[in-house]
Design a protein around this nucleic acid. Structure first.
Lengths: 188, 188, 188, 188
DNA sequence: GATGAATGAGGATTCATTCAT
DNA sequence: TATGAATGAATCCTCATTCAT
């Protein structure tokens, strides 16, 4: 009974938060986000009791979108190389096409307001790619390193790649592929 | 009347800014920085008329320190591999040993408050390493890519490496060397 | 349709209100009270259309409990002294044992949100004690004073006494009795 | 150097705080206090970094005024009775004439925001009256009780008395004197 | 009737920068 | 020049009450 929380409303707030945080950083005012979302400022706090909780929800939401994009179709890919290429291409293309989300995710990843537990949950959800990367790297230069480190190396490379892809849409595919070769050579 | 009185004072402010920004992010209050530096809040603005100017000075200062650390002795290194190793080891060891500066530099690099011109000056000052990297990469997977991109790839790798080195001091050297092999294989 | 469904529910709300107001003052949020009571926040307003009405109900409820505690057995007490002792002992012991209620009553008594009419009704309900006190005081130092004033004097003494009794449970009885002697000497 | 804090300004803020808190309780808005004082809201926090610190300053200020009023001329009073009368009359007349301050002090005394240390300092400053009261009470009904308790008893009596005096200015003196007799009889 | 989401006017506090001293 | 008080818009969040379901 009573009015249920509106999923649509929640999503509008998330969307506006992404837009404004991409533009103004984590300092973006909750009131501005609410206004952009077309909801009264108090209502933002009905959905996210705290700015920090909004940050965490944002992190989870974006990370999940990314992971499901990357994972989608992964099981149909062929050998290790094909699989890594699948992950890499989907990852970087998503990032190139979703600049705001990518930038927001980058900010949130560096923020102390996103709880360690939230970050770890994101890491855990990415297990398919993480495992793949670990497997690929098992004989290469990074063999024996903590898989979190290997993952972080790949992630930082991905971020740099996405960044250049969106700045340079014409050469995006080429950058994507070159960097994949770079990665492949180094990792194995 | 030359520069405002004390160079020492300027440096104290810079140091406190690094300390507080590392701890609290770019939102650290100018008054808090001044207080930590033992300087009246108004005086901070004698040295840096604006918080943004403080940011830019900070960026330049840290970047210069990093570059001079990396460049120091570079001309004595042997072949390309030795030279790159020199750069890599000095870079990452500096970062591992100077966590606050590294973190502040990372924040500033993402901030819109640090002017494009400031960032470009930093890039230009790093020309020796940049050239070296470009040269090493001239036949590898990233051949033909914008040298800013190649530089960014190496930089992101360095950042990730430094991060793990300082979190894991006992394995710092091992991480440093493995990652160098990773880089070397990939780049050539 | 008679009174809203559940008397029990009303009482739960009252109890939670006492608990939270004792702890946080009259600023305690209605939502917090409802939550503590295990009642949806909207429902609180079914029972008490306004926070002010909740305050008034609280005042009346606590005052009634106090008065009935004090009046109970009063008719069996002997002479004036015995009767006053009966009143005094029951009053202060109740207060010592019901710290939260006492503190809430004190807050409400000072609040402008409790209507004058509510306060007067409480005063009227206490007529047995009030009359007794007036009677005892008819020859003493306060003879001729407004009986509301005499009552207020005794009440303030009682409040101070209860306060010390609950802070100092071991000497509670002693404090109770000494203060009675104090009162008795002064009043007659 | 620089602009010194203005004692006058501080006092204006204190005065406005007394006025508004007397009228609206401790919930009076800092912004309203600042506005009433004719200072920008931010300036209030230059003088009192926190609302709680304002409360503590208020408590101390009012208590000091009261104590110095009461103590003034006390050493010229004659025997114990005269001295107690001096204290009593000055105390209650001050309260009757300074309704706002008295009400504010009463609110602050009950507030958890006024630190125990602040309250204790106030108690300590009142040592002359406290000692006098203890001395007077040394043989009476309250002999052997904690002097804080004896003091509290007298204080509560004083508060009730002042309250009636200001409500009933025509009988103020009579109430004052009757209550003194009450106190004298009870205490000795 | 019961529920709990919706509302938006406050509320305390912060802060970069200015300017009187 | 050095100082630190002054400023007021901006910030996150709260809350009594209403009203859709």
């Amino acid at each position: 009974m009573a009015r249920p929380k509106s999923e649509a409303r929640r999503q509008t707030i998330i969307d506006s938060a992404i837009k404004l945080i991409a533009r103004e950083g984590l300092g973006a005012a909750t009131a501005a986000i609410a206004k952009d979302a077309g909801v009264p400022n108090g209502s933002l706090f009905t959905y996210f009791p705290t700015k920090v909780e909004l940050f965490n929800a944002l992190y989870t939401e974006i990370k999940e979108e990314l992971i499901s994009t990357v994972d989608d179709g992964l099981s149909n890919a062929g050998d290790e190389r094909e699989q890594l290429l699948h992950v890499w291409a989907r990852w970087t293309r998503w990032g190139a096409a979703n600049g705001e989300k990518r930038r927001v995710l980058a900010q949130l990843s560096m923020s102390e307001d996103v709880l360690e537990s939230t970050k770890m949950a994101g890491f855990a959800a990415a297990h398919r790619s993480v495992n793949l990367i670990r497997q690929v790297a098992r004989h290469g230069a990074l063999r024996g390193q903590d898989s979190a480190f290997v993952g972080a190396v790949v992630e930082s490379l991905a971020n740099t790649t996405m960044d250049f892809m969106s700045r340079n849409p014409k050469h995006a595919e080429e950058v994507c592929m070159s960097t994949f070769e770079f990665l492949w050579k180094a990792l194995r």
